[in-house]
Nucleic acid binder design. Sequence first.
DNA 1: CAGTGTGAACCTTTTCACAGCA
DNA 2: TGCTGTGAAAAGGTTCACACTG
Lengths: 210, 210
Amino acid sequence: MGRLPVYLRALVEMAERGALTASSEAVAEAAGVNPPKVRKDLSNLGIAGTRGVGYDVAYLIHQIRSELGLTQRWPVLIAGVGNLGHALANYKGFDERGFEVVALVDADASLVGQEVAGGLVQDIANLEAIAREKEVAIGMICTPADAAQGAADRMVAAGIRSILNFAPVLITAPPEVAVRQVDLSVELQILAFYEQRREALGRLAHRDPL
Amino acid sequence: MGRLPVYLRALVEMAERGALTASSEAVAEAAGVNPPKVRKDLSNLGIAGTRGVGYDVAYLIHQIRSELGLTQRWPVLIAGVGNLGHALANYKGFDERGFEVVALVDADASLVGQEVAGGLVQDIANLEAIAREKEVAIGMICTPADAAQGAADRMVAAGIRSILNFAPVLITAPPEVAVRQVDLSVELQILAFYEQRREALGRLAHRDPL
DNA sequence: CAGTGTGAACCTTTTCACAGCA
DNA sequence: TGCTGTGAAAAGGTTCACACTG
């Protein structure tokens, strides 16, 4: 369930503010959803609150963390150390949430050997060996589009079963490998779609008032 | 419809390879969905193909572009020129798809005046004036979490009606403003969830074979 | 009384099957 | 014959109302 991380973020913030208990309404507001959805989600997860009071924040955080597998740290590998790869390697939020960038690889020989975010960039040709040695669980692809599938194939060969792909192409992988696609310009295009619609509606409204 | 940009990407790739016509099956495969979905989507959009042949690639590209509002260029402003903002300012894919980064702003005085991706970083205090002057349509928030809502408020005040938020917080805006949230560590957490489930299932299978 | 837990209604999306046309 | 166009069925997810309990 994709909402769990959002609930978790909201709950951690509440806990930091000293809240001991939280109603479904409070969680819903902080997560941007409606209260029944929160209750259903938690109920489906087998998490119970206290009627008339709400949910125990600390317990709820623990339960969601364990459901999300965040009670352990996950070693992450980044393939492609261009602008985006560089930015992600330096992103503090990953470490805070239990993800540790343990390896950086790139195909560009001029980048190999350079230090980025406290780690050395290695040759992508060695991806498999590196991933196995560091027991990488999650791979992030930040290469250009034409190198993405190759990077994915190496990751699969290395036994990586979770891939986060930022390259603007569809990559294919065996069904046992979970692939998530994040295409930044797709997000912009969706916004442009709404802008476009708004303008079209505006023209319509102007043409035919009321 | 969030699939349109993906279809578009697939179709542009096909066109570059010289395809003049494409069946719903071909588009579906390239976009990672099933053929009936492609047909339904296009049908709902009022786009018709030729029975027995498929869709005219060039016409389809044109139609989807116009539906997505990509026949015009959109001026984009980036708030927060840290690692991520820097990477996005340099990202070529935006320009190729009709998005032009026309302004960069940051709250950090040591960054203001610096040149990033061929543009000068300006003070976030001037966001409203800059956005109005450049007629910015879309704002991207790449600030730390605690500065995100402030940046959003300035954008709304500047008349920006589409916001893409990369900060790991929920930002609120008036209903007429379209907000999309992209949280990179949420994506990782979802992958961790699958890893976690796989391990749990693995243990189960091991305990009770067949 | 405040706020959870949940079954039932509801709505949207996806899938299917097949009729219909170049 | 091949592939589109589309209603009808199925699935999935969301909302609602309200019984229930600490």
